[in-house]
């Protein structure tokens, strides 16, 4: 097996190590919250829908699933940067370009794995609810019937819309990784270049702001540049017409922005960004 795959395997294991712990916490916490709410009657939710214990649990579990996915995403962001700057990980005989890509890809893989596990957990809880709550039971059956009726109307446009949204989410996840790495690497490279008196922790924060400011001014200087870069974000904020053409354009531009930062990060990582001394 090539070093790229072996490195991926080890990184994936590292990043998914605490998933089981996270899921147990989520299950226990949501159970506890449901339990107390259900018996104390301090319920701010509509009683008629959440009359069943499992239905309430399912609802809280889904809210927590979003929250915990966010937490897990942040943990992969942290681990990306931890691995990048660590001597143990950097001493492995693998090309820096491959190491960087392995790092980002394994984080995304771990995130995908986590989302799949969340979906499975939700489905299991859903099936239990389906069995115990007759009201939920009928609502779901009606919903599926409704979907079945609309299924004939699903055309290419709706499909594109659906998969486009998924693609956009994926690109955004990568964008987060790339931009955090970029700020980490460029600020460190800047501080390594400046005199030692400036290499204090708070100068790092200043460096990050300076880099963001310079990048912003550089983009703003050219009106077209600003248009190009801001488009995907304006699209996501609903400031554009929101047609499928806009989605396609937003996707292409987002992909281009990702590729640009991937390229910049790879250069910074392999030429300037040193691992900290590991003693």
């Amino acid at each position: 097996m090539a070093i790229f795959n072996r490195y991926f395997t080890v990184l994936f294991r590292l990043k998914t190590k605490w998933i089981s712990l996270l899921l147990i916490i989520q299950t226990v916490a949501t159970f506890a919250i449901t339990f107390f709410n259900f018996h104390n009657g301090h319920l701010y939710l509509n009683r008629s829908i959440f009359s069943n214990f499992f239905t309430l649990w399912l609802a809280i579990f889904i809210v927590f699933a979003w929250l915990f996915t966010g937490v897990f995403y942040l943990s992969t962001c942290y681990q990306n940067e931890h691995v990048s700057g660590n001597q143990t990980w950097r001493l492995v005989p693998i090309d820096d370009k491959k190491l960087y890509f392995d790092n980002i890809l394994s984080s995304f893989g771990a995130l995908l794995f986590f989302v799949i596990l969340e979906i499975i957990c939700t489905l299991v809880l859903g099936v239990v609810t389906f069995t115990f709550d007759s009201q939920f039971h009928t609502t779901i059956i009606e919903m599926f019937a409704d979907i079945g009726r609309h299924l004939q109307q699903v055309d290419l446009e709706i499909m594109f819309n659906f998969f486009g949204a998924i693609m956009m989410t994926i690109l955004c996840a990568f964008f987060g990784y790339f931009i955090i790495s970029f700020l980490n690497y460029s600020s460190r490279a800047l501080l390594d270049f400046l005199p030692e008196a400036l290499s204090k922790a708070y100068f790092r924060v200043i460096a990050v702001f300076v880099i963001i400011l310079v990048a912003w001014l550089a983009i703003k200087a050219s009106d077209i540049g600003l248009q190009i870069i801001s488009f995907p974000f304006r699209f996501m904020l609903g400031e554009t017409t929101g047609t499928n053409d806009d989605l396609a354009l937003a996707l292409v531009l987002m992909l281009a922005i990702n590729l640009l930062f991937w390229f910049l990060d790879t250069i910074l990582f392999s030429k300037f960004f040193e691992a900290r001394e590991g003693k």
Binding site: N86, Q87, T88, W89, L91, V92, P93, I94, D95
Partner: peptide, 19 residues
């Protein structure tokens, strides 16, 4: 001369900070 090749031909006492 390439860094990845060099890493493959040397063994450096690392403080195991990655763990």
């Amino acid at each position: 001369t390439k860094e990845a090749d060099r890493k493959g031909h040397l063994s450096f006492t690392d403080g195991l900070t990655g763990f």
